[in-house]
Every structure is written in C-alpha cells, then in structure tokens.
Design a protein around this nucleic acid. Structure first.
Length: 513
RNA sequence: GGCGACGUAGCCAAGUGGAUAAGGCGGGGGUCUGCAAAACCCCUAUUCGGCGGUUCGAAUCCGCCCGUCGCCUCCA
C-alpha cells in the first residue's frame, strides 16, 4: 500500500510503526457550522481510516477540537455569549453533521480547554531546552534553534524571512518565531501559568493532544493543504524539539481544497455552503460520491451540476444494491475480480476515483446479470461491503428536508383529484370489488387530509397514506386493464412531484428529483 | 516576489512511456414495458491547453509559451 507523504514529496510504502496505526487529523474550531470544504477533509480521512481497518489494521483516530482561540473569543463577544456556550453549541451541531455524513467517530475528541496542563508542560519543557523564550506574558518558539525548520513545506527560513508580508513582532527575536502561550487581555478567558494569566498559542494544542493521546511519535497526521504552513510546520518544530524524537509523524497526508467558483471555500471569504445546507439538497451518499470521485490531493470545485450528477449516480448504486428476486439456481456472478481491482486502486494512495469506477462496474454487471437470470447475491454483497464499509455509503435514498412538498401536496390534491373524478366516477359503480374498495380508501385518506388542522404534525403521514391509496387504486385499474384511469392517476401524482415505478416486486413511489 | 499544483469529451474525472484514452452525469438511438419509469444494449475525445524537442514509440519525459488555482496571514 502506497501513501503520498508531504514530508518526502513522494509516494511511500505504508509501514506503520507498531501494531496500532495512530492517526491524528486536524479538526474544527467550533464558532460556526462546518462547511463542505471541511466535509471534504473529514470524509476523505474517514475513508482512510475505513480502508486501513478493511485491510486489517487496528486504527486509533484522534481529532482535536480547538475551543479556545482569537476567533472564538471574538464571535462569543459578538453574540453576547460565553466561550463555552458558543463552542458547545457548535460542537453539538458538528456531531450531527458528522453522523449525517456517515463519518465514523474518532476515538477521542480532546478539547484545547481540557488540555491546558499538558500544554503548559510542553511550553515549559521547550523553554527549559532553549527552544522557547518568554517576553512578558508571551512565550515564543525560537525557530532558529531548529536547523530543519521548513522541511514539511519545503521552504527555508531565509526564503520566508524575505517574504514581504511577514510582520516583525516587536518583542520577537526572529520574525518567524511563533507564539506558544499568549498573555490574556483583561476580560478574556485565561489560565494561570508560569508566565502569568494567558491561553495557548495557535499550534501548541495539536502537539499536546497528539502526544498525550497517541504518543510522542505517530503514524499519520492529516489535514487540509492550507495547514501545511504554518500550522503543521510549527507542530513538527515544537513536538520534535520537546520530545527529541523524529519524526513526530511518519506520514503527513494533506487533502486538496474545495473551490467555490474561482476561490477556495473558506470562513474568511464567506463563500461557503455549510454541510447542513448541502444535506437539505443532496443525500450523504451523493456528497461522498462527489468528494471521492476525484483524487484527494487535487482541488475540487463545488457545483450544483456536479452534485446533481453524483445524486443520480448514488441512486443507480442503490438500485443495483437493492433486493432482487432470489435465484439460487442461477449461475453465480463472481465478485472476486472487482474486489481485487478495488483494492489495487485504493492501495495506490487511496485512489478513490478508480475504486468508484470499479463500484459502478459492479452495479452495471449486477443489473445485467440479473436480467440474464443469474444469481447476483454475492456481487450485491460485495457492492454493499465495499461501498458501505470502505467508502461509507449509506445506500439510502435522498432525504428531503425543509421543503414544502407535503404542504403543497396537501394543498393541491383536492383540486387535482376533483379534475379526474369524472373519470373515476364512471367506474365508481363498477362490479370490480377491488376497484371499489380502493376508491373508498382514497376517499377516506383525502377526508383525513382535509380534516387535519394546519398545525397537524402528522401531515407527512396523511400525505403518504393518500399516495399509497392512489397507488393501490391505480394497480386495481391496471389489473382490470382499465388503463385510462390508471394513467390519469399517475399523471396527477406526477404533477404533484410523485413518480410511480412498476417493478417486479410491485409498484413503488418516489419523490421526483 | 518566493514555493507548489493543475489544464483530458457538453460537464465532472481516472490514466503519467507502449497494443481499443477508465468511470460517472448529460445527449442521441434501441430493447423491455399496456403506456411510462427503472434497468440493459449501441453511439457520443483518431485525441489529451499551444508550439518545439527526446524516443522505434508520449496525454504521459524535457524546454518555452498561454491559461487557472493554492500556500507564503486565521483557515479542512
């Protein structure tokens, strides 16, 4: 299995350091809802973890929550709430997002606020070893004492010092020195430390959590490409200086960034779609397919058209994985070669795009073989296993949220139904008992739909009961070979956004996409 | 200014020296179906931003040019 390591700039054979693969992925700053760009990172690393486990590794996955820093304080002040109130709210919302996207929970989600003693211990250690110095209540990391500083991002101190945009802090020894501990201003959240009241700097919490929960050296450290410098570069410097052990992380894996139009999607640019907004329009499977359909290191551009395409793809996979008439006596569609090709693709630096191509081929061949009367149960099992276990697909239809489908349906059905009742009327006194009963059922579901109050929480139930009743009525007409009323019912439902499909297992209804 | 990535069909996107350039979406035609839908079958890049070069052979390597983007500052 090969993995691209940012540290070496090339693909390397993946050989973990011990029995358990230790993996640290940079997480959220909880002061706003996570957006699709975050989803890209977390879905990708979710697949990394799932694939490692699929290949038989045990994985320990830790993801930090940085719940104290400047932006958080600013947002809390703006909203007039305390920092813990703000962060708790967004951590909870993040948990919901993660679950909705079918991302496996990390084994630990340490929060910066809970790691202050470890952070102080590391800062103290760095000071004692000469890698850090205090100026007043601030403690800075002394970059020039680290000869290989810049090795991750491939730049030298000289290059960086020459950069025109680096501000020289008045009290820093070197413009590239960075803050480990920040003196608190009056009214800000703070903790006692050997340097007075203050809070952690911007990179130290990740070192502290990684060391505390995974050990001084780990296998995989991941995050978005925008974290390579300065965040991860500084993590390496402070961690390796503190422990005296190299490398801090054996494999550095960075995903490309999501583009929004011409720019990257980011909080600071404000050009973002949150995970929740996306989930109102697209299924989790479609979002995962969208993200996994390209190489993780390439940038990806958000577009409705591409998400919609992914949605249709997800529907096709679902169709192929869904139940079939069992054919135990038919020839078996073998699935081993697909599995081998899937593994081959994933082994090459998580080639999810090619792995997905294999997934779609399984789907096509299942449909084809099923039509030819073969037993496709093994292939379906493989499709579901690779799709859900490794790629994290749910194989569920899109869940429509926060739209007005049910209300509109309830509002319009009476009028629509009235317009076809003349056709129905001709058959109302039919001898066909099934048709008569089905008509009565439709009438009664319509009555209950009419009688409900607007505040009725059971709107969805009533609407679906009515759709079911109409579907059954149409089937009764079809069995009686009365196609005109049958087609009329289908047309009316179609105008209301409901599609009827006749399958070997009977007629099913779906929301129109 | 420095460092880096990318440019493949209408759209998304694999492939990175060799035999017919994956896969998805869309489009066209067909099979099936009472009619639809779904599914399946066929077609949809003689060509990989442009121009040169290396090679028996290049989308794949080298050079130049054009274009797009990221990082260098909080950021997945």
């Amino acid at each position: 299995m090969k993995v691209f390591n940012t540290l070496s700039g090339q693909k390397e054979e993946f050989v973990p350091r011990g029995d358990v693969v230790t993996m640290y992925v940079c997480g959220i700053n909880p002061y706003a809802d996570a957006h699709i760009g975050h989803a890209m990172s977390y879905i990708f690393f979710d697949v990394v973890r799932r694939y490692l486990e699929f290949r038989g590794y045990r994985v320990k996955h830790v993801q930090n929550i940085t719940d104290i820093e400047d932006n958080i304080i600013a947002h809390a002040n703006e909203q007039g709430v305390s920092v813990p109130e703000l962060t708790q709210k967004y951590v909870e919302r993040y948990d919901e997002d993660i679950e909705a996207l079918n991302i496996l929970r990390a084994h630990e989600y340490p929060r910066a606020m809970g790691e202050i003693p470890k952070i102080i211990e590391i800062v103290q250690g760095l000071v004692e070893k000469g890698f850090a110095y205090a100026v007043g209540g601030n403690v800075y990391f002394r970059v020039r004492n680290v000869p290989d500083y810049g090795k991750l991002s491939g730049r030298s101190l000289e290059q960086m010092r020459a950069g025109a945009r680096i501000e020289v802090g008045a009290d820093k020894e070197d413009p590239m020195d960075f803050l480990l501990w920040k003196e608190a201003k009056p009214g800000e959240p703070s903790w006692d430390s050997p340097w007075g009241k203050g809070r952690p700097g911007w990179h130290i919490e990740c070192s502290a959590m990684s060391i505390r929960y995974l050990g001084e050296q780990i296998d995989i450290h991941g995050g978005g490409q925008d974290l390579v410098f300065p965040h991860h570069e500084n993590e390496i410097a402070q961690s390796e200086s503190f422990t005296g052990k190299k490398p801090f992380a054996k494999y550095w894996i960075h995903n490309g960034l999501l583009q929004m139009g011409a720019d990257k999607m980011s909080k600071s640019l404000g050009n973002l779609i949150t995970i929740r907004q996306a989930l109102e329009k697209y299924s989790a499977d479609a979002i995962r397919l969208f993200i996994l359909s390209s190489y993780y290191r390439s940038p990806l551009t958000y577009s409705e058209e591409t998400l919609e395409a992914a949605e249709r793809g997800a529907e096709r996979l679902l169709g192929a994985a869904a139940g079939r008439v069992p054919r135990p006596l038919g020839a078996k569609l073998e699935a081993d070669t697909y599995r081998e090709r899937f593994i081959e693709a994933m082994d090459d630096d998580f080639g999810t795009a090619q792995a997905l191509a294999v997934i779609f081929e399984i789907a096509r061949d299942i449909n084809r073989a099923d039509e030819a009367g073969m037993d496709v149960s093994d292939a379906q099992h493989t499709l579901r296993e690779l799709g859900s276990e490794v790629l994290g697909l749910k194989f569920e239809f899109r869940v429509y949220k926060d739209d007005s489908f049910y209300a509109e349906y309830a509002h319009e059905i009476d009028m629509k139904w009235g317009s076809i009742s003349t056709i129905i009327g001709d058959t109302r006194n039919s001898d066909d008992k099934a048709i008569k009963e089905a008509i009565d059922k439709v009438d009664s579901t319509l009555a209950s739909l009419r009688d409900r109050t607007d505040s009725d929480m059971e709107l969805k139930v009533f609407v679906e009961a009515n759709i079911e009743a109409q579907k059954d009525l149409r089937d009764a007409y079809r069995r009686a070979r009365q196609f005109q009323p049958a087609d009329e019912i289908r047309n009316v439902l179609g105008e209301l956004g409901v599609v009827l499909e006749d399958t070997p297992q009977g007629t099913i209804w779906k929301r129109k996409r």
